[in-house]
Design a protein around this nucleic acid. Structure first.
Lengths: 143, 143
DNA sequence: ATTATAATTGCAACTAAGTTGATTTTGGGA
DNA sequence: TCCCAAAATCAACTTAGTTGCAATTATAAT
């Protein structure tokens, strides 16, 4: 998940002003090796400056509606966020039942499934999310 | 999602006592045409008798851990529950972005994807969840 | 039948994650 | 400099679920 995107330009393309906080959100996500919770994003930003949580939630919401970010529903109360730019195509995720960690998987299987489902569903469907659950290596060793 | 399972027997097979509330949870889910939120399950039970929400949550949790139910992560804060018996195999779900309604799709595509992902992931993976998002017919007509 | 024991259910209080509405701050143009 | 709209903040609230403990109910042993 290294950040290859030009965030100011990305925002300009959406007609959104590139404020310090909006860029901070994108930079944190661009630097993360996995999808993050709102809390984690907020903490990362707070390492450098102060932010209100409402602001973070509003930015995340706005970006998700615009398609700049993807919001993932997972087996915890908090959603995860990841960049949705061309360098980060949709992909399945693996979530460990024990520790809850979510890691990204290769996009290919999801693309094939998307092709299969899009036909029958017509243009109603515009997004697919695949979550594989199980126990990660680390947790398996520990127990 | 008509209920074809013998719930008392299902519970007996798990070594769980078939109490009135446990059966009520299963009957409500067996009669539902779609996956339900804890709230909805609770309200359905309350149409007949009184229940405490903690009890419902505990039953749902226990059943999910035992594999009697599947808990679905969706784009809302509340999870959905559905029967996981042989008459209700895992299947993809479609969720409307506007109204939030979740409907069940045919199981076949998910089974194919499962076969594709299980190989690379090895025995780590034990479950897959596919959520297709978009706008349902009803909401499309309205807007 | 009576007591002991364990399982189940209920209650009150709490937490985590996110939301709302009103207010304040900030960054550009006239 | 002053004004305005957009952005950020604050306090208060909501929703979904959790915790610890008490009360009830069921099961077993005497």
């Amino acid at each position: 998940m290294s950040d290859l995107c030009d965030f100011p330009q990305l925002l300009a393309g959406q007609g959104v002003k590139a404020t310090a906080l909006r860029l901070a959100v994108l930079e944190v996500l661009g630097a993360a090796p996995r999808a993050l919770r709102a809390q984690e994003i907020m903490e990362a930003i707070r390492a450098r400056r102060r932010v209100n949580k409402v602001t973070v939630y509003r930015i995340l919401d706005d970006f998700t509606r615009r398609g700049i970010l993807r919001r993932l529903a997972v087996e915890d109360r908090a959603s995860l966020y990841e960049l949705a730019c061309e360098h980060h195509p949709p992909h399945p995720h693996f979530q460990c039942r024990e520790c809850g960690q979510v890691q990204c998987l290769e996009p290919a299987p999801l693309e094939r499934m998307w092709a299969e489902l899009k036909g029958p569903l017509g243009n109603r469907a515009d997004r697919i999310e695949v979550r594989v659950a199980g126990v990660c290596h680390k947790c398996r060793e520990t127990s």
